[in-house]
């Protein structure tokens, strides 16, 4: 009975503490000045308290980002936990902002906080959504781009969780390649 009461009245701890960051593009400020830590949480209940309190991604203005990263990892390539890593990138067409963006972002958040990548969840650093006029982007960042088994497992599970058809191909890009790209496209290191 006591166990039941504890179960009923205790919050459900997550494996990790997570930090939500918000980026708002103000050209008069530096990139880092535009990045703000919103809050941290480490239970299922506190995740929902935050999620239901903040603006849906589809309602943000262009140039804004949400980033959700494990506590201690900053949402930038330069962080030591990110610099050898990369991202599974979902690029959306403009019209998908009104049909799929919020659902995809919520599924992404649930995947990372629920540690849904089996033995490879420790590879995950965080997730990012970029709201952009030319097309929104969602990504899961992982810590080691050379970890083929981990990266491809995460990609397969992620694609399935988003409900993408087998005809859709998603790509993984190393941050090092994104940082040094010459054109607008970064080559995919892996695809699923």
């Amino acid at each position: 009975r006591e166990e039941e009461a504890v179960e009923r009245y205790s919050k459900h701890p997550l494996q990790n503490r997570w930090a939500l960051w918000f980026f708002k593009n103000d050209k008069s400020k530096t990139w880092q000045e535009n990045l703000r830590l919103v809050t941290k949480f480490d239970t299922v209940e506190d995740f929902w308290a935050l999620y239901t309190h903040i603006q849906l991604a589809s309602k943000l203005t262009s140039g804004c980002d949400y980033s959700l990263f494990k506590d201690g990892i900053e949402p930038m390539w330069e962080d030591r936990r990110n610099k050898c890593g990369g991202r599974w990138l979902i690029t959306l067409a403009k019209q998908q902002r009104h049909t799929e963006l919020d659902r995809f972002w919520l599924e992404t958040l649930l995947c990372v906080i629920g540690e849904m990548f089996d033995g490879y969840s420790d590879e995950v650093c965080g997730a990012v959504i970029n709201i952009r006029a030319k097309g929104d982007k969602i990504a899961i960042w992982t810590q080691e781009a050379e970890n083929r088994d981990g990266v491809t497992h995460i990609g397969r599970v992620y694609k399935e969780r988003l409900g993408l058809s087998s005809k859709v191909v998603i790509g993984y890009q190393a941050h090092a390649d994104t940082a040094t790209k010459s054109g607008s496209l970064t080559k995919n290191k892996f695809v699923v």
């Binding site: 459900h12 701890p13 997550l14 929902w48 599924e107 649930l110 629920g114 849904m116 969840s121």
Partner: peptide, 20 residues
């Protein structure tokens, strides 16, 4: 023990009133 939750479990808490 790893705290691993599937989406249905997590979604169950979406509209649950906060515990005090």
């Amino acid at each position: 023990e790893k705290k691993q939750y599937d989406r249905e479990f997590l979604l169950d808490f979406q509209f649950m009133p906060a515990c005090i």
